[in-house]
């Protein structure tokens, strides 16, 4: 788990946006080898989209070969409804950048057969080779996507009834009329998120500090679905200072020191090159590191997930990541071309 702490929401958003841009550019996506990005809606990610749009307009990033999958969508409100997630995504992101509409996937809450819609969504994710980076936010109750407290940690894309708390919270967007708030939604499951090769979560504000504490300082618990991230090989949570209010000082200092030490030593906490460039067969043969180093020297206990969860994340590493040497990074970039 990486926990990145920034002073305010704007700095946290900027960090994530720049991280995503860096990831996509390193990945060097092409038509045949697109970068697959999972996307959230909500108030926290707005700042991230804003920076992404600015950087796109400045020419720092192209989304031409980026395939997107959104987390969720309400059931039964028109796609053009001002509160639909289609509208949100169009307004904050898609209308400003060059993501091609045929590369965009958002669950259709008005599908004739919602069950088929969900199955098709999972199949579509598989068809493009899985999600490279799933960006997400959480609710004050620690829910990720619409996986409300009590959702199965092995859940997949499905119809979900919204918690009463969420309905009340959402009513502010629907004339404060509970009757108008959609009661159901389509959402990716916890397992769908965990299968992404990397998960990045933004959490800002004091009202989410309890959720952050539950998710990183306590155990895996289906009442705080984000805590499932503890089972993921490459999770990163980016927060502002306010969101750390409930954390122990020790926790905050620990994560801050990791970041400080890493940067003082001249390396960043980066992903293994395979994850960074995606499962690209051509690069495998010229991976500079000896094959043996990929194997664990000591047989470590199997991760808990492999027994808890039906399907492990793709490219599951059996050991913690050792920061790679700079020459190796260069090599993998050259190979990518």
């Amino acid at each position: 788990m990486r926990l990145i702490i920034r002073d305010d929401p704007a700095a946290a958003s900027k960090f994530i946006a720049n991280y995503i841009i860096d990831r996509i550019n390193t990945f060097n996506p092409s038509k045949e080898h697109p970068f697959v990005l999972g996307l959230p809606t909500g108030s926290s990610p707005v700042g991230i989209y804003k920076v992404l749009v600015e950087r796109y307009k400045a020419g720092a990033i192209s989304f031409e070969h980026v395939v997107t999958f959104n987390m969720d969508e309400y059931i039964g409100i028109p796609r053009e409804h001002p509160e639909s997630y289609h509208t949100f995504m169009y307004k904050h992101f898609f209308s400003h950048v060059n993501v091609h509409p045929s590369n965009i996937h958002i669950l259709n809450g008005n599908a004739q057969d919602l069950e088929a819609e969900c199955v098709g969504y999972e199949a579509a994710i598989k068809a493009v080779g899985g999600i490279d980076l799933f960006l997400g936010g959480i609710g004050p109750d620690g829910h990720i996507a619409f996986n409300e407290p009590g959702s199965s940690m092995a859940s997949r894309t499905r119809v979900k009834t919204l918690a009463y708390d969420t309905i009340i919270a959402n009513s502010r967007f629907f004339d404060n009329d509970l009757e108008k708030v959609p009661k159901m939604a389509l959402t990716v499951g916890v397992q769908t998120v965990l299968e992404a090769r990397e998960v990045v979560i933004i959490i800002t504000g004091a009202h989410k500090s309890l959720a952050l504490k539950k998710c990183i300082e306590e155990g895996v618990n289906h009442m705080w679905t984000l805590s499932s991230l503890q089972l993921h090989p490459h999770p990163m949570i980016v927060v502002d200072e306010d969101a750390t209010l409930e954390l122990q000082v020790k926790t905050v200092r620990y994560f801050k020191s990791i970041e400080a030490v890493a940067s003082s030593q001249g390396f960043e906490q980066i992903l293994p090159s395979k994850v960074r460039t995606g499962p690209r067969p051509a690069t495998k043969s010229i991976e500079p590191l000896p094959e043996t180093k990929q194997e664990p020297s000591i047989l470590s206990p199997q991760p808990l997930t492999s027994t808890l969860l039906a399907a492990p994340a793709t490219e599951y590493p059996l050991r913690s990541i050792t920061p790679e040497l700079i020459p190796d990074r260069m090599g993998s970039r050259i190979a990518a071309h």
Binding site: R79, H86, Y90, S95, H100, P101, S102, I104
Partner: peptide, 25 residues
Amino acid sequence: QDLWVSSSTGKIVRSQEAFYSEHSV
């Protein structure tokens, strides 16, 4: 805000719908 117009219909485009349903850009 952005504005989309079409010279074939001569109208202001319902851009969000055109984008999602017809994949128009």
